[in-house]
Design a protein around this nucleic acid. Structure first.
Lengths: 136, 136
DNA sequence: AACAATTTAGTACTTTAGTATGAACTCCAA
DNA sequence: TTGGAGTTCATACTAAAGTACTAAATTGTT
C-alpha cells in the first residue's frame, strides 16, 4: 500500500515535470495540438503498461516452474511422483488409492520408495523437500 | 492491480485535462510539432513501463506474504501457530516438542486443536490449507 | 482478586503412516 | 528371450499421528 502511494507520487512528479517542460517548449495558441499530444501521451502510456505487463506475466514462473531435471536426477518414477503430488495436497494413503484406483498397499509401497529417494523420514518432510527442490 | 492501473489512467487523464485547460499558450515556436508529439509519446511510454515495473516488482510475492488477519480470524493461538509452522517444516511431534522444550503430549494437544481450527483431517492437509490461506 | 483463555501435560485409545519382505505381472531393451 | 525396472498387491509388523478426555499452572484482563 505504501508502495502504491510511492508510485502515485512518482507518476504525479513525472507528469508535473513533463508539464513544466511543456511550458518552455510550447507556446499557447493551437488547441488541436494540445489534444493530439494528450491523446498520444495517454495511448503510449497505456501501451507501455500493457506491453510491460505482458512481458512480466510471461515470466513470473521461475519459482513455481517444476524442475523436471531434478525429478529425473532423483530417479522418481512417474507413479511415485504422482503419489508425491497427492501427498502434497494433503491426502491420506487411502484417499490417494481411491483417487488413482489402487490399493492402499500400493500407495504405501510408492510412499516408502519416494521417501527414500527424497531422503525424507516423513511425508510432511517430503513435501518440504519437494517444494524446496521445485519439483511440485 | 487492475484497480491501480485504472486509477492511474484516470489520474493521468485528469492531469492532461488540467494541462489542456491551462492558460499557457501552445504554439510551436521553432520546434516541429511532430517532434514534440514524438517526445511526449516516448516519455509516456517509458514512464508507463517504469511505473508498471515498480508496481509489479513491489509486490511479486502476494503468495509469500503472511496474512495475519486470517490467523486471527481462525483464532489460532500463538503456540498453535508456532506448531503449525514446525509441522510445515516436516518435523514430527517429538521433534517439535524437543525444539520448543515441550512434551510430545503438549504438541499433540496443539496439533489436534489447530487441525480443528483449520478444518483439516491430517497435518499434511493442514499444511496445504495454511499455504492456500497464506498464513505460513 | 476473580475470571477467561492459554498453555502445559497426562492416560488411554483408535487410526494412519511407514518398514520389511515376498510375489506376480508388464514392458522395454540388450 | 532374458533381465532389469516399474507397477501392483499382500501380510505382518512397528512407529507415529490423532482423538477424547481430564486437569493443573500460567497469563492477561476487568
Amino acid at each position: 500500500m505504501k508502495k502504491t502511494i510511492l508510485v502515485f507520487g512518482l507518476l504525479i512528479f513525472a507528469l508535473l515535470l513533463l508539464f513544466q517542460l511543456s511550458k518552455y517548449s510550447l507556446v499557447s495558441g493551437n488547441m488541436d495540438v494540445e489534444i493530439i499530444i494528450a491523446v498520444v501521451a495517454v495511448v503510449f502510456f497505456i501501451v507501455g503498461i500493457y506491453i510491460n505487463k505482458k512481458s512480466l506475466n510471461s515470466e513470473p514462473f521461475p519459482e513455481s516452474e517444476i524442475n523436471f531435471q531434478k525429478i529425473e536426477a532423483l530417479e522418481l518414477s512417474s507413479r511415485e511422483y504422482e503419489v508425491l503430488t497427492e501427498i502434497a495436497k494433503g491426502l491420506s494413503n487411502k484417499e490417494i488409492g481411491d483417487k488413482l484406483f489402487l490399493s492402499e498397499s500400493t500407495i504405501k509401497t510408492h510412499v516408502s520408495n519416494l521417501l527414500v529417494k527424497l531422503n525424507a523420514k516423513r511425508r510432511t518432510q517430503a513435501i518440504q523437500i519437494a517444494k524446496e527442490m521445485h519439483i511440485i
